[in-house]
């Protein structure tokens, strides 16, 4: 196995909760990300799924150094970059770029498309010499499937899907090795989503990018990812290749999440077992003791309140080879198939 291009070790991000105006006193913390270990391998697509508030966007921001971790280590090609700043940080950042969720607010409405996509070159002039920039921007527009003649237009002249392509072109401008895409298609209509997903997948393949794809949509994540991490309340609870997670999940949260996704096939209605979780996700300011999922878990026992389950291959699956052998943070992990087998549609 090749060396990871990005390593996350014990990443933590806590936002302090304070009381008082003049004399601020910390009374607690929102534990947005609370201990994440992940590796991103060169040329792979790593999907991260989770519901709102699970910390997936905060994790993304830490990966691109938009947020500094409260604790933990972030390594890029083996080099600790957690505390980098100034010139050293700039050099690393060039290689780790982000695509944002909302194509309506992440583009400056007063800048032309050419200026938006070309702006990274102002910060990193070594990538494209001044005289060459317009040509590079045109090239980038072409790569993302937009007409290069649009270089002088403004964002409002484009549709949502086209704007997301502009955002992707900007992300690609510096020829990064890593792209972190945070919910890149959730603001788009169904028929346009597919266009943007195909574009990202093709670019990843052709440019050999390492792609982190973050989404709440389990179907989209399966479609695009080689490996998938499932997050709950600031932690990764299960991690594996796509068929390991989708066809052989062992963590109860993953199982509940998968069983809740509506499948666009009315025949599946009768054949499906729905695991309906009780209640809501607890607040990240008051995380339950032990296993953080236990307050909604139907399997929870005393041990779950006392002992934090670690993300590792559970003992019962450690010996035998098979798709159930993948990391799962549950004391009582067991395999359960919840997604109906693919129908005879093909």
């Amino acid at each position: 196995m090749s060396e990871p291009i990005l390593e996350m070790r014990g990443l933590v991000k806590h936002y302090p909760l304070t009381r008082g105006i003049l004399f601020k006193k910390q009374i607690g913390a929102v534990k947005a990300v609370d201990g994440v270990d992940l590796d991103l391998l060169p040329g792979e697509t790593l999907g991260i799924v989770g519901e709102s508030g699970c910390g997936k966007s905060t994790l993304a921001k830490m990966m691109v150094h938009l947020e500094r971790p409260t604790a933990g280590v972030l390594r890029y090609k083996g080099e600790d970059i957690t505390q980098l700043s100034g010139r050293a940080l700039k050099r690393v950042r060039r290689n780790i770029q982000m695509v944002f969720q909302d194509p309506y607010t992440s583009l400056n409405p007063r800048m032309t498309v050419g200026d938006i996509i070309g702006e990274p070159f102002d910060i990193h002039p070594e990538v494209a010499p001044k005289g060459d920039r317009r040509r590079r921007v045109r090239e980038l527009l072409d790569v993302v499937g937009l007409n290069p003649e649009y270089i002088n237009r403004y964002p409002h002249q484009f549709s949502g899907g086209q704007r997301q392509r502009i955002g992707i072109a900007r992300g690609l401008a510096l020829r990064p090795e890593i792209i972190v895409a945070d919910e890149p298609v959730s603001a788009l209509d169904v028929s346009v989503q597919a266009q943007v997903i195909n574009l990202l997948a093709a670019l990843q393949r052709e440019l050999g990018l390492s792609l982190v794809f973050i989404s709440h949509d389990l179907s989209i994540v399966r479609h695009i990812s080689d490996r998938v991490g499932v997050m709950y309340l600031g932690r990764v609870v299960e991690l594996g290749r796509d068929e390991e997670i989708y066809d052989h999940p062992t963590h109860p949260y993953t199982q509940a999440l998968l069983s809740a996704v509506p499948v666009p096939d009315p025949l599946a209605r009768e054949h499906r077992e729905r695991i309906l979780l009780g209640g809501d996700v607890p607040s990240p300011a008051h995380i339950p003791s032990g296993c953080r999922f236990r307050t909604r878990c139907w399997k929870a026992r005393e041990r779950c309140a006392l002992e934090v389950p670690l993300l590792a291959v559970p003992a019962e699956f450690r010996l035998a080879e098979g798709p159930a052998k993948h990391p799962s943070a549950c004391h009582f992990a067991e395999e359960k198939r919840v997604v109906p087998t693919a129908g005879p549609s093909d």
């Binding site: 209509d189 597919a194 195909n198 179907s219 989209i220 479609h223 068929e243 499948v263 666009p264 997604v339």
Partner: peptide, 22 residues
Amino acid sequence: LLESIPRLDQKGRELYAIKGLP
């Protein structure tokens, strides 16, 4: 529309995309 949504139960190849916009 049916062809353009990724499926949970199988890993697709390239998605069919309806070209253009409404």
